[in-house]
Design a protein around this nucleic acid. Structure first.
Lengths: 191, 191
DNA sequence: GTCTATAATCAGATAGAC
DNA sequence: GTCTATCTGATTATAGAC
């Protein structure tokens, strides 16, 4: 019962972070959306920052579950493309929480949050291994540092190009995904 | 004299927007950095949103000046690459203001700001023309909608990959620029 | 136009009863 | 654990003297 309530809180935080970002999200809103009093919320999570950290930790859990669901025999490059597709679908569906990379008190809470950090490390390790495999196979540009490739993939989670294309209203979500996937892996230049 | 003061204000806003973003920037800070009282600031600009809009309008002026400085004979693709380099240098130098794309009152002020909107349209028109030329020459992937290419170039102004690489401390600014330029135009895949 | 002082509001967090 | 009511501090914006 308590777990169910905390899940509802995290779901709500997740949606609000995706919709309006950390600074614009208010604790009052979260409480209202969940249907409890703000003071009750603070019995579950000690601060607004911890709410965000919990949502990010949950996202990492989901990500690890998705990575685990990919068929073992799939080629590393295809796994990477699948992960980016998954991220972009979350984003277009309004379920990709976005945090300001500058806020220092938030960063402090995040790096202190064990579940989040463990999840992030787990995801990064697995993606990093696939990146290096794909580079060894000559499919991903071996001249790029693997860490730069990893960051570039992560950055699709907050790519404004998708929002702009969606606002334009000329493309379906899946078209947008394939478009951004193409610019990401194939680049803007003709091949 | 009045113009000089307003320039100082805009410069300060620009740096603060680049450093901490719109929501975390406070009007008190701006006033303190400029060295005037907050009430004086409000004699020059009617709201915090207008401060941001003025900074963005100034950015568009700078951009137009840069576009105009490019040699006429340069190939369109090279001009586009030069523009992206210019944007990334600004960003790494802490002079690229970043605004939240979600804040609605801010968007209202922005679209009502004639100098900003005219500047943005001017920049977009010129970049759009170069993009279509480069596509006609078969240098930029003709299958990509020109608007998607434009957005992808603009997105380099708020690409977190650069901040992360800079935080890593393993690369010089110019190395980071060439790396991101490579992933942007050539993609992650090997060629 | 610049200042000091202050209004007005909002949001994160807490007190204390049940 | 949940609630109502409140505190506290920060922040946008303005009043009014010079």
């Amino acid at each position: 019962m308590l777990q169910a309530r905390e899940d509802a809180i995290i779901r709500s935080v997740n949606l609000l972070l995706a919709e309006k970002g950390f600074e614009a999200m208010t604790v009052d809103e979260v409480a209202a959306n969940v249907g409890i009093a703000k003071a009750s919320l603070y019995k579950h999570f000690p601060s607004k920052e911890d709410l965000a950290a919990a949502a990010m930790a949950h996202l990492m859990e989901q990500a690890l579950a998705f990575l685990g669901s990919l068929p073992e025999e799939q080629a590393p490059l295809e796994k990477l493309r699948a992960v980016v597709r998954w991220m972009m679908r979350l984003k277009l569906g309004g379920e990709m929480p976005s945090l300001p990379s500058q806020n220092s008190t938030l960063r402090t809470t995040l790096v202190a949050h064990k579940a989040y950090m463990d999840g992030l490390m787990g995801v990064s390790d697995r993606l990093g291994a696939w990146i290096e495999e794909a580079q060894a196979q000559g499919l991903i540009n071996p001249k790029l540092p693997a860490i730069a490739v990893l960051y570039t993939l992560y950055a699709r989670a907050c790519d404004p190009v998708m929002e702009f294309l969606k606002m334009g209203g000329l493309n379906t979500d899946e078209e947008i995904i394939e478009l951004v996937l193409s610019t990401c892996f194939d680049g803007l230049n003709a091949r």
